[in-house]
């Protein structure tokens, strides 16, 4: 009976260890604003986004009768970095996001006037075609920086709750894990503190993580994920690589701890039987 209960507790401990690993990894990566900003720096996200935005601008300019020269100096690197960081902050804190494009519009109008005057022509900014073009450029900047301001605002309110939930869940899982481990030890205090059950739990968690990671790698092509644009995709790929690395470390550490516990148990068990 004691053995059966210990095996059941050991199985539940596997689930707790898996949950603990998952929560710890996710909390220290995806759910951490500072981590995400560091990944943006690592991925040269700001410079890449600058390039992506200009490419989008060119997509609209190519059919506008204007040259790419009108796209020069529409916004500063500082403004772009500030806007991107505001997006990240909005996601993690739920703050209302607003991206101003008035500076871009004014700079663009100035550049257009300069170019058009060089050719000895005139331009009417009240014209529908010109207004559509200006709007398209502003919209391109906003959508590249934030994908969609309204989407970011709705994600932000949900994300805040998710972070809070994850913190609560982690505390609960830690407490339950300790309780179960202590129960196993108490139940088997005379059998080398139930180290064999702890070993099995640790090995099972470690192996499960490693096998799951392997199967995920076989069935998906995570390295070529393409979302929104190249710059964002590169950040996502870096985060995934980091997650997988942390998952592998967690799996290996749990497996080794399990093996060590098992060997210690078996050595102690052998001595126990030799004594008796």
């Amino acid at each position: 009976m004691k053995k059966a209960i210990s095996y059941v507790l050991s199985f539940v401990l596997v689930l707790m260890l898996l949950s603990l690993c998952l929560l710890a990894i996710v909390k220290s990566t995806i759910l951490d604003e500072k981590y995400m900003i560091s990944k943006l720096e690592e991925a040269n996200y700001y410079e890449r986004m600058n390039g992506e935005i200009i490419e989008q601008f060119k997509n609209y300019t190519i059919q506008s009768g204007l040259s790419d020269e009108v796209l020069e100096n529409l916004f500063t690197e500082d403004k772009l970095k500030q806007d991107i960081n505001n997006v990240i902050d909005s996601i993690y804190t739920g703050k209302e996001l607003e991206i101003s494009t008035s500076e871009i519009r004014e700079n663009l109008k100035e550049n257009i006037l300069t170019e058009v005057e060089k050719e000895g022509k005139t331009v009417d900014f009240e014209d529908e075609a010109m207004e559509e073009y200006l709007k398209a450029i502003e919209s391109a900047y906003e959508s590249q920086v934030s994908y969609s301001t309204s989407t970011i605002n709705s994600i932000g309110s949900t994300f805040e709750k998710v972070i809070s939930l994850a913190q609560t869940a982690q505390i609960i899982v830690i407490v339950v894990t300790i309780v179960i481990a202590v129960l196993i030890i108490i139940l088997n205090i005379k059998q080398i503190f139930g180290l064999n059950y702890l070993a099995i739990s640790s090995m099972a968690s470690g192996l499960f993580i490693l096998i799951a990671k392997f199967l995920l790698g076989q069935s998906t092509d995570l390295k070529n994920i393409m979302l929104i644009n190249q710059a964002t995709s590169h950040v996502i790929q870096l985060v995934i690589e980091d997650l997988l690395a942390k998952v592998t470390i967690a799996g290996v550490v749990l497996l080794i701890i399990g093996l060590i516990f098992s060997i210690i148990y078996n050595l102690q068990n052998k001595k126990y039987f030799e004594k008796n």
Partner: peptide, 13 residues
């Protein structure tokens, strides 16, 4: 004995 523990771990998995 360690392999036996591993087998039980695999059954859990």
């Amino acid at each position: 004995a360690t392999i036996k523990h591993l087998i039980v771990a695999i059954m859990f998995i």
